[in-house]
């Protein structure tokens, strides 16, 4: 059953730095997908996403605030499906500063220093969150 607050068990998944996929939709009904480097836990009702270069995503959420984010929990053989609604954008303050520092760390680890750069911290309200368990790998999945 979907929840309406981020549960404690999602925090280590978000903080592991696993990339996530994000889907938005323009006002004229065109979906847009992108890979995002990280989803940030703000509190149990809010998540923050980094505004770096995905300009179509940024435009979409400002004309249609709904967004979908999928976060993988590889070790747990699961994913988390988040329905979000864009609330506001912050260009300074503690959330922005924390995200900026973490993005720089990710950039230096992945050889993308100077390319990954935080422009704003976009704050989203959590509408629903659901953990979907995947089947365990047995090695026979693709056997014909």
């Amino acid at each position: 059953m979907p929840m309406t607050r981020l549960p404690p068990e999602i925090r280590p998944v978000l903080e592991s730095g696993t990339p996530a996929a994000m889907v938005t939709c323009s006002a004229d009904g065109k979906p847009n997908t992108t890979v995002i480097s990280r989803v940030y836990y703000v509190d149990d009702m809010h998540a923050a996403l980094s505004f770096q270069f995905f300009s179509k995503t940024i435009r979409n959420v400002r004309e249609n605030p709904r967004a979908f984010v999928c976060v993988w929990d590889m070790a747990g053989h699961a994913h988390w499906a988040l329905q979000l609604e864009f609330e506001r954008s912050e260009t300074d303050g503690p959330i922005f500063d924390a995200m900026d520092m973490q993005i720089e760390a990710i950039a230096s680890m992945t050889g993308m220093s100077g390319i990954f750069k935080l422009r704003a911290a976009d704050i989203y309200r959590v509408l629903s969150v659901e953990r979907v368990q995947h089947p365990r790998w047995t090695g026979t999945e693709f056997a014909n």
Binding site: A21, T24, N32, T33, R66, F68, V69, C70
Partner: peptide
């Protein structure tokens, strides 16, 4: 890879 769709209310889904 990942695919995005949207429903009749323009709610996106992945």
């Amino acid at each position: 890879a990942f695919v995005g769709t949207r429903d009749r209310d323009l709610v996106p889904f992945g």
